[in-house]
């Protein structure tokens, strides 16, 4: 990130655009300044502030890539992201980042890796699943658990099938609102998957993202099952406007989610997640 002015975006071009579902799309971006493109690096779990001309900025986690080919998967839900839906290949946007603390993928080498996601906001986790898959020999068993409301909303379904075929890998899926049970799918919330997961409780790292309540309940269950608390990591979402610890919107008690997170060891935020209003 530019040392001189942490508020100033860089220009980037949309070089490719994929419509994933009616309201989810993926951009492949390239910084127009070759020097920025060359220097840009990120850690999985970090985010960028994406800027739409004349509308504003929004925090979006970095999916993968580098400065000449940066992937962001965006769900059109708010004022800025809905307007971003209309952009086409060749259009320019602003980008600043990356910001925040990412997943502990380095510390987790040699350990079993458990990913738990709920809902559609699982982009922060998908980037690190891809990383672990790409560096399979560095890690132990890989367990991926995902819950969605309806099976047809499962954005990454084709990938799940591919990942299922990898050695020492388990993919567990559930839909909470479907009536019919499909092959390879459970019915219910993510909790129904936890008993089926096969991993070494004492030698694992858990990485989760989803709504606060699901994170809290799942983290507590896993800890009750014997996973050490400091090995459970959650990626949190809060209102982010500056991304640099100045604007105060992302505060959660004494934490600035933008710079102290968005990824936290669960014990750091457990108490605050118990009370409404933080």
């Amino acid at each position: 990130m530019s040392v001189a002015n942490c508020y100033l975006p860089w220009e980037a071009e949309i070089v490719e655009r994929t419509q994933e579902t009616p309201d989810i799309f993926t951009w492949r971006l390239r910084f127009t300044d070759p020097e920025i493109a060359r220097q840009y690096t990120f850690q999985h779990g970090q985010f960028n502030m994406l800027y739409l001309y004349g509308v504003g900025e929004v925090a979006i986690s970095v999916m993968s890539g580098d400065g000449s080919s940066l992937l962001h998967t965006i769900r059109a839900v708010g004022r800025v992201t809905q307007a971003m839906m209309d952009l086409r290949v060749g259009d320019r946007v602003g980008v600043r980042g990356p910001f925040g603390r990412g997943w502990p993928l380095f510390d987790a080498r040699g350990q079993d890796i458990v990913f738990v996601t709920a809902g559609l906001g699982c982009a922060p986790v998908v980037s690190s699943i891809r990383y672990v898959v790409a560096n399979r020999p560095d890690y132990g068993r890989l367990v991926i658990m995902q819950s969605v409301r309806y099976r047809h909303e499962a954005l990454w379904a084709p990938q799940y099938d591919a990942w299922r075929g990898l050695p020492d890998t388990q993919v567990l899926l559930t839909s909470s609102r479907d009536k019919t049970r499909w092959p390879l799918w459970e019915l219910g919330r993510v909790g129904v998957l936890l008993d089926q997961a096969d991993y070494d409780k004492n030698n694992c790292y858990v990485m989760m993202c989803g709504p606060d309540q699901m994170l809290r309940d799942t983290a507590k269950t896993l800890i009750e099952k014997g996973v050490p608390g400091p090995r459970v990591f959650v990626s949190l979402e809060r209102n982010m406007q500056c991304a640099v610890g100045h604007c105060g919107h992302c505060q959660m008690g004494g934490k600035f989610v933008c710079k102290d997170g968005p990824v936290f060891p669960f014990p750091e935020v457990a108490a605050l997640m118990e009370t409404e209003g933080f």
Binding site: Y7, Y51, Y53, G54, Q241, C242, C247, G248, H249
Partner: peptide, 25 residues
Amino acid sequence: FCHREVEAPALDGQSSVHRRDWDSC
């Protein structure tokens, strides 16, 4: 210290100013 970021596009559509205004929790 709280503030919000605000976007103020010019009427001619050719430029826009990004600013911050004090905000309150």
